[in-house]
Structure formats: C-alpha cells, structure tokens
Deep mutational scan, measured.
Amino acid sequence: KKRQCKVLFEYIPQNEDELELKVGDIIDINEEVEEGWWSGTLNNKLGLFPSNFVKELEVTD
C-alpha cells in the first residue's frame, strides 16, 4: 500500500530538489529522509517536502 498525505499549507521550494506545495495537493510518500523532511512524488515530480506542512491520510483498501 502506498502512503499518501494531503497538503495543509502552501510551500515555496527553497532548493531545486524540493516540491512546491499547494493546499489540497495529494502527495505519494516515498520515505522519511531526515527529521521533518519526507521524500515524495507530486505531479510526476520526485522531491523533498516539509512533513509539518502535510497530514498523512488514512490508508484504505
């Protein structure tokens, strides 16, 4: 099962390897990279994003 999260706050990337987040976006979570940062895929782009800007969705079948 893939983990997903929903964006709660807009985020403007500070580095090229970060994702731009818009409220309501759904991100496929890949892994936790470091404290406070997750790796995920949004709009076919893989990048990092701050985990405190999102809420993980309940996994359903």
Rank of each mutant, 00 (worst) to 15 (best):
K45F: 02
E58G: 14
P13D: 03
I27D: 03
P13L: 00
L8H: 06
K1T: 14
F53K: 12
G36H: 06
R3L: 10
D25H: 02
K55H: 12
E16Y: 02
K2L: 06
L46M: 13
V23I: 11
N52H: 07
F53D: 00
V59A: 13
G47K: 01
L21A: 01
E16Q: 13
I29C: 04
E56S: 07
E34K: 15
W37T: 07
C5M: 06
Q14H: 05
K1G: 11
L46Q: 13
E58D: 14
I26H: 06
D25T: 05
K2Q: 14
E34Q: 11
G24P: 01
N44K: 13
K22M: 03
L57T: 08
F49V: 04
S51M: 11
K22A: 04
E56D: 05
T41S: 07
E34F: 06
S51K: 11
L48M: 11
S51N: 02
S51W: 12
G36T: 04
K55P: 00
L42V: 12
R3F: 05
L42S: 14
K2E: 15
Q4Y: 15
E35A: 09
K55Y: 06
K2M: 13
E18L: 03
V23A: 04
D25I: 07
K2F: 05
E34D: 08
F53Y: 13
F49C: 00
E16H: 01
K2G: 13
W37C: 08
S39E: 11
E20K: 13
S51P: 06
N43W: 03
K1Y: 10
I12C: 08
T60P: 15
F9T: 15
K22H: 15
L42P: 02
E16M: 15
E32H: 13
N15S: 12
R3Y: 04
D25Q: 06
E34I: 09
W37N: 05
E56G: 06
V54Q: 04
E10G: 11
Y11D: 05
L46S: 14
L42N: 14
I29P: 03
E34M: 12
D25M: 01
N30A: 08
E35C: 13
D28F: 07
T60Y: 05
V7S: 06
N30G: 09
E10A: 07
S39D: 02
K45Y: 08
K1R: 10
Y11R: 14
G47E: 07
Y11N: 07
F9Q: 14
K22W: 05
L46I: 15
C5L: 05
E58K: 13
K55S: 09
L19T: 01
C5D: 03
P13W: 01
K6N: 05
L57W: 05
K2S: 02
L42E: 00
K55Q: 14
W37D: 06
F49I: 00
K6I: 15
V23E: 04
V59G: 13
R3T: 11
N52A: 12
P50D: 03
N30T: 06
D61R: 09
Y11M: 00
E16F: 01
E31F: 04
E20I: 05
G36Y: 08
K1N: 15
I26K: 03
L46R: 14
E35H: 08
I27E: 00
N44A: 12
P50E: 01
R3H: 11
F53I: 15
D25E: 12
K45V: 04
L46C: 15
K45G: 03
K22D: 10
E16G: 08
V33F: 09
G36K: 08
F49W: 00
L8R: 07
L57M: 10
V23G: 05
E32G: 10
D28G: 04
T60H: 14
V23Q: 12
V54M: 03
E32L: 02
F9L: 15
D25N: 06
L42T: 11
K45W: 00
N43M: 11
N43G: 12
G47M: 00
N43C: 10
T60E: 13
G36W: 04
I27Q: 04
V33A: 11
L57Q: 05
I27S: 03
K45C: 12
W38L: 13
S39P: 00
V59T: 13
E31T: 12
R3M: 09
I12K: 12
W37Q: 02
G24E: 09
E34V: 12
Q4M: 15
E32R: 06
W37I: 04
D25A: 07
N15F: 05
E35S: 15
K6M: 15
E58Y: 12
L8T: 10
V33K: 09
G47F: 01
T60A: 06
P13Y: 03
N30Q: 12
L8C: 05
R3Q: 00
E34A: 10
N44V: 01
V23P: 12
L48Y: 12
K6H: 13
G40T: 00
E58N: 12
G47L: 00
K45L: 03
P50M: 04
N44R: 08
D28Q: 05
N52L: 08
K1C: 09
G36N: 13
V54T: 09
T60G: 11
T41L: 07
S51H: 07
N52D: 13
I29D: 12
L19G: 05
I29G: 08
W38H: 03
W38P: 01
L19S: 01
N30P: 05
L19F: 01
K6P: 02
V33S: 10
W38T: 03
E34G: 12
D17A: 11
L42R: 06
T41P: 00
P50V: 00
D61S: 02
C5V: 15
G40D: 05
D61H: 15
E31Q: 09
L46T: 15
N15T: 11
R3V: 08
I26P: 01
G40S: 00
D61N: 08
V54W: 00
E58A: 08
E34Y: 11
S51G: 07
E58H: 10
L8D: 08
I26A: 00
L19Q: 05
P50L: 03
G24Q: 00
F53L: 10
Q14T: 14
V7T: 00
K45S: 03
V59K: 08
E35G: 07
E56T: 12
E32S: 12
E35T: 10
